[in-house]
Design a protein around this nucleic acid. Sequence first.
DNA 1: TACGTGGCGCTTTTT
DNA 2: GCGCCACGTA
Length: 682
Amino acid sequence: MSRQYTLQRTPRSTSIHLDYAAELNEQQLAAVTAEPGPLLVIAGAGSGKTRTLTYRVAYLLENGIDPRNILLLTFTNRAAREMLGRVANLLPVDASELWGGTFHSVGNRILRRHGSALGYSSGFTIMDREDQKDLIDTVVANAGIDPKEIRFPKGDVLAEIFSFVVNTEKPLEELLVEKFPYFLPLLDKIQDVHERYEKKKKATNSMDFDDLLEKTLSMFQEHERIAEVYRRQFQFILVDEYQDTNKIQADLVDLLARDHRNVMVVGDDAQSIYSWRGANFQNILEFPKRYPDGQVFKIEMNYRSVPEILEVANAAIAANVQQFRKHLSSTRESKALKPALVALNDGAEQAQFVAQRILELRDENVDLNDIAVLYRAHYHAVELQLELSRRGIPYQITSGIRFFEQAHIKDVTAFIRFVANPRDEVAFKRMVKLLPGIGNRTAENLWQAWAAGVVAADVDRGSEKESQAAGVSASGYSFGEPLQAMNVSAKSKKMWTQLAHTLDEIAPGGQPNPPSEMITSIVEAIYDDYAKVNFTNYELRREDLDQLAVFARQFKDVHEFLSQLALISNVDAEATSVQGADKEAVNLSTVHQAKGLEFHTVFVIWLTDGMFPSSRSLDTRDALEEERRLFYVAITRARDELYLTYPQMRLSGGYGDVFQRPSRFLQEIPNELLEDWQVRRR
DNA sequence: TACGTGGCGCTTTTT
DNA sequence: GCGCCACGTA
């Protein structure tokens, strides 16, 4: 028999500081002060979701919960930082020991500690989509698949398929039937590639984004002792944006909360917009089934938008079949100003309209930072960017390519990745291919030679699994020496020697220098010359690299630096001001990236059928409903003014102009809710 | 085997 | 307007 013994909480603060009843509305208060247990908070847009979560954390802390026992999972790292910042403002507590961040970053943190249980060393590399594609391509090549004989999916397509398999926890065959039926004849071969890819990742001590979730989960499932540690640690689990979790994330939460069931999930089914990434909003719809003893709270009072905007939002989402019906009601006073519906001739005119309105708004003292232009896809913004530049209106764009995904950044970090993880095949090949006379074939041969040495080194060390990668770089080790010993063509010889020296310089005795110093060394010794010759915009790229060195200064540990690089989102990066500039600027963003934000004025542009909704989403009802939710998200970002614009013509390169139909979503909104603006040229 | 050249197809959303 | 691929040459 086992005995249940409860340790009493040590009260941290003797008095309760916050007057919760005064700071929160009734619905929020109920959620914030709920008894421990499963809690589902259905939070409409602008209803104070973040506020509720923040106060819940504060409430737990004030009731003596140790910050170490709280896990706060958010959609971006920035969201976690902001919430914890607010908690710190509310309470005189040090919450720095509270775990907060994205599922991926938390997975990373746990795997760095316990990855050895799965045969990974703590210095594993995190691969982004491009690395993943590269590695899959080499795997396909090694699998003896001749691209001339059969048409086989490319690395990026396979990466997407594998990612779906992991995130939805579906067998490959089922997934192919549903999403890629035309690949069914290749099932066996794809399966084979998948297995080889998994092995390859292990051999190169690398994990892709999905592994950070999947490996964490499987480690918990296979190693009860480790799972137990975290079950005990995370006594209270809070999840933001729960509607955008996928199966594996939901399982992770369920597993951790198995014993205590203190899990609070917050979300809005109407804002689920990531199904293409495996998100499944059934997670939120079925939460009450999985936790029948749980409590459900609905917070539906909207503090953000004026009633006129909210009515449009309610109308916009009404056509969706799959949803928790709810009706947002506004707490704000009517402005007697209806959202605008604006038809324009073409994209250029649309850009002129937006730009002109922005200038007028600025004259009315609306802060430029408080204005956003939202669109379905990045390329919808090109004309607008031109127009804004022409008029000297500063803008800030959360771009599609992340800063850290640019070629020059990845080239330089390849050197760092390699010395941090000498088994990183992708990084090694990328690095050596920068040298003249080294292409795919030679890189492969050089890698084979290097890998043989690494394995030998592991054997010498008596193959302590713990320290495989770290072991190779243990004291007295040189990266340069074994490289010098390899054969390269006369054409490459000079730079090859240079490379060997550089590696010893950045990792003397096998120990990597601080990241910032490494960057400077690599750029000066090798990359600067390379960049001058290979890029037309050398100056810009050099500036980026200098910026990278500055950014790197805050990290002393290589692995920490590389993890950050891989896991930071562009929304996060902006806040870290990697790209500088926190001056006044209009925000240009995809709707996806604007999730969770709000602005005084919002323009939603390119509202034509095929653009928004995207033509790719017109086939199935589910896809169309998701587009509609996306439209809903766009509308509900606006506090005071909303402009819905659509060009009637699209100038497409070469083939003449194409007439555009107004978005079907616009037709779903009753006329009387919008004001028709007739735009005239003069 | 590396790398330059010309043609082609094409454009969703991202941790 | 851009990147990817196939092809041909050094």
